[in-house]
Design a protein around this nucleic acid. Structure first.
Length: 725
DNA sequence: CGCCGCAGGCTTTTT
DNA sequence: GCCTGCGGCG
């Protein structure tokens, strides 16, 4: 593609950003304003006009998906020249730097990356060794503390307990955890960043090397950077590199994970002469949707200020549905999706968004009942699945026998009679003689102390591993995976299992074999001294893969509001809009956190291109308990003229609901009320007369005397009654 | 050792 | 309502 043509296709603000002269640039890019486009064009512009070798450009994103999209789009603009461009996630880039300079970061050459689950296991182990249980401090809290400290760039030594016993405990666990991870030579996600940063600060030659190389740093989603990531950009930029930061303070929704919106402002302060460009023209949503988004986000006080506008026409009104309960809500939403499909919309054009994963269940049930294909995002990704990690652990242990974490993971998976008792002995023997678990388990001196049964079990396990190892030599990656899965007994174990999930586990294991077969061994890992298997294993944690192993299908999309960021859909349904749920009850009392929730709402609204439906339920079962809720405050922040409110057809009148709650929303549509003695129609029972009503709210039951089937007791919110003449 | 049953717990999660 | 962790029993 011709760059001039490409530049002409940009709007003035986009063009200003893309063609900005030498210096730092901050692009405040509103939702749907073409920020990826700007980033990609900037890379092309630098190459084409400024004659910057793409090799000297580093583009940083947060997700692998965004990184590969950027690479692909830069490729279409640049052609061959795109090769050499370093585009990746913060973690991917730092990981690569650590691999390259492992010894300078005090890491073994084939150090391992711990994912969340691995980390938690290690925290548990550390706490167990300290004599602490989950009751002293929940394991999750301890892991959380460690991660947020690292995100802030803090090592345990610089932390102060501030006289708080709980905090002291957290610091002690962090300290012990750190000691253990260094001993094992493993790094968690936060450590990848922090360790890289520390390496750059202490190893001047390495820093100089990268500073000389990178003339341009482009950072996507700048509002999501945490303290360490910001410091990384700063130190890498040094005095000479130009930083092109793109972000939207209104879409900062990861504050709870250490992201600092303040970095956006800090950028203009810490870097000299920053040129700020605002992208405010939105190319995604209708005027109505945009107006709603603007109105909601305007309720936040901490903003850099931006107002989205569009050339698009107003479009349909936003619908607000108020259901009696979650069942009602789900039925309505799925009904609407079905109707839109009947109007020739593809399933994948609709997305149901929610604040918390638990809300997907009922929607799923209804979609299944309606035979609508759907896909739930989130949950475990491919390489996070237990069976996959088990198989990888066999490969790891076969490749490096002294990998204790892998040993612990699979020594008794599938069950082979090596229990806690035996493992205690193995660990103790290892500790006493400074051996790895593998060395300990296979040592003759330990065997001598063991009972026959335990000894046999350990010998059998060792035999399996040796078998796998023997077949590693010269085998393709997929053969190696195949052997690990088969010889370990994992496949046989799941095939024999009657568990409902076992079948999909076997499928996943097969998927692993094909994933191994299509793995591309990269030059950097060769240069870092890894063999193909090590390279494959190293990348598994970092690129955990997609939520589903299946190929993309034309499905209704279900996901949390968080994971919807960056995506767009023709029709968006945001459910569970109740105070306490969204905004989350945990954020409601804290103004700063409430603003983050509001930004989440803003993100949700701006995902919609054409249609937006917001729904809440007056009562909802949460954790098995009935809760009555007030509609989300965010609903009231949307101007009434943009909204059409919908109530279910059947509304129980005051006549037989003893204590109706005051309606919070002004209802524009007339309610259809049923009176005692009225003729009604039911989908399957036909005509009848409403005889009596009992109970209240969600539990309201109606007694209807049907002409054909006689009297029936119906749940008011389930039976779709219509008034009959 | 390993299975089963019960009690308690619980946002969001790019990497 | 569903997953996790622990305690008891076969």
């Amino acid at each position: 593609m011709n760059l001039a043509d490409a530049l002409m296709s940009l709007n003035p603000a986009q063009r200003e950003a893309v063609t900005a002269p030498a210096g730092h640039v901050l692009v405040l890019a509103g939702a749907g304003s073409g920020k990826t486009r700007v980033l990609v064009h900037r890379i092309a512009y630098l190459a084409d006009v400024e004659k910057v070798d793409p090799w000297r450009v580093l583009a940083v994103t947060f997700t692998n998906k965004a990184a590969s999209e950027m690479r692909a789009r830069a490729g279409t603009l640049l052609g061959q020249a795109e090769r050499g461009l370093w585009a990746g996630t913060f973690h991917g880039i730092c990981h690569r730097m650590l691999r390259q300079h492992a010894p300078h970061a005090q890491l073994p050459r084939n150090f391992q990356v711990l994912d969340q689950d691995d980390q938690l296991r290690l925290v548990k182990r550390v706490m167990r060794e300290m004599g602490l249980s989950d009751e002293d401090l929940p394991h999750r809290d301890a892991a959380w503390f460690i991660n947020s400290s690292k995100d802030e760039g803090r090592r345990p030594e610089v932390l102060d307990a501030q006289g708080q016993p709980r905090r002291r405990l957290q610091i002690e666990i962090y300290q012990a955890y750190e000691k253990l991870t260094r001993l094992l030579g493993v790094v968690d996600f936060a450590e990848i960043l922090l360790r890289t940063q520390e390496m750059l600060l202490t190893q001047r030659e390495i820093l100089g090397h990268y500073q000389r190389r990178f003339a341009h740093l482009l950072v996507d989603e700048f509002q999501d950077t945490n303290a360490v990531q910001y410091a990384f950009v700063r130190v890498l930029a040094g005095e000479h590199a130009q930083v092109f930061a793109v972000g939207d303070d209104d879409q900062s929704i990861y504050g709870w994970r250490g992201a600092k919106v303040e970095n956006v402002q800090a950028f203009t302060r810490d870097f000299p002469k920053v040129r700020t460009v605002r992208l405010e023209q939105n190319y995604r949503s209708t005027g109505t949707i945009l107006a709603a988004a603007n109105a909601v986000i305007a309720c936040n006080s901490e903003r850099l200020g931006k107002n989205l506008w569009t050339d698009d026409k107003a479009g349909a009104l936003i619908e607000i549905f108020s259901g009696y309960n979650e069942v009602d809500e789900a039925r309505y939403v799925v009904g609407r999706i079905k109707a839109s499909m009947e109007a020739d919309r593809r399933p994948s054009e609709s997305a149901v968004l929610y604040r918390s994963n638990a809300l997907s269940r009922l929607i799923e049930e209804n979609l299944i009942a309606q035979r609508i294909p759907y896909r739930v995002y989130g949950g475990l990704r491919f390489f996070e699945r237990a069976e996959i990690k088990d198989a990888l652990a066999y490969l790891r242990l076969a490749n490096s026998p002294n990998d204790d974490a892998s040993f612990e993971r699979i020594v008794n998976t599938p069950p082979r009679g090596i229990g806690e008792q035996t493992m205690q002995a193995v660990r103790q023997h290892a500790n006493a003689h400074s051996l790895s678990l593998w060395q300990s388990a296979t040592s003759a001196s330990l065997a001598a102390k063991m009972t026959g049964r335990a000894r046999n079990a350990l010998t059998a396990f060792a035999g399996i591993l040796q078998d796998i190892r023997a077949r590693l030599e010269g085998a393709t990656l997929s053969d190696a995976a195949e052997h690990a899965i088969t010889l370990s007994g994992l496949r046989a174990f799941y095939e024999a299992s009657s568990d409902s999930k076992a079948e999909s586990r076997v499928e996943n294991l097969d998927q692993l074999i094909s994933a191994a077969g299509s793995y591309v061994f990269n030059d950097e890992d060769v240069a870092a001294g890894l063999n193909e298997l090590e390279s494959f294993l190293a990348n598994a944690a970092l690129e955990a893969g997609d939520g589903e192993a299946d190929a993309w299908e034309d499905c209704v999309q279900l996901m949390t509001l968080h994971s919807a960021k960056g995506l767009e859909f023709a029709c968006v349904y945001i459910i569970g809009l109740e105070d306490g749920l969204f905004p989350s009850g945990r954020s409601i009392d804290d103004p700063a956190r409430l603003e983050e929730e509001r930004r989440l709402m803003y993100v949700g609204i701006t995902r919609a291109r054409q249609e937006l439906l917001l729904s809440f339920a007056e009562s909802r079962r949460i954790h098995g308990q009935e809760h009555f809720a007030v509609p989300s405050r965010f609903l009231k922040e949307i101007p009434a003229e943009l909204v059409r409110e919908i109530r279910p057809r059947l509304n129980v009148s005051r006549g037989f609901t003893p204590a109706p709650r005051a309606p919070r929303m002004q209802l524009e549509e007339p309610q259809t009320l049923f009176k005692l003695g009225q003729s009604v129609k039911h989908a399957s029972f036909g005509r009848g007369v409403l005889v009596s009503a009992m109970g209240s709210g969600e539990n309201t039951k109606l007694l209807v005397n049907f002409e054909t089937v006689g009297p029936k007791l119906l749940m008011a919110n389930v039976a779709k009654l219509e008034a009959a003449a």
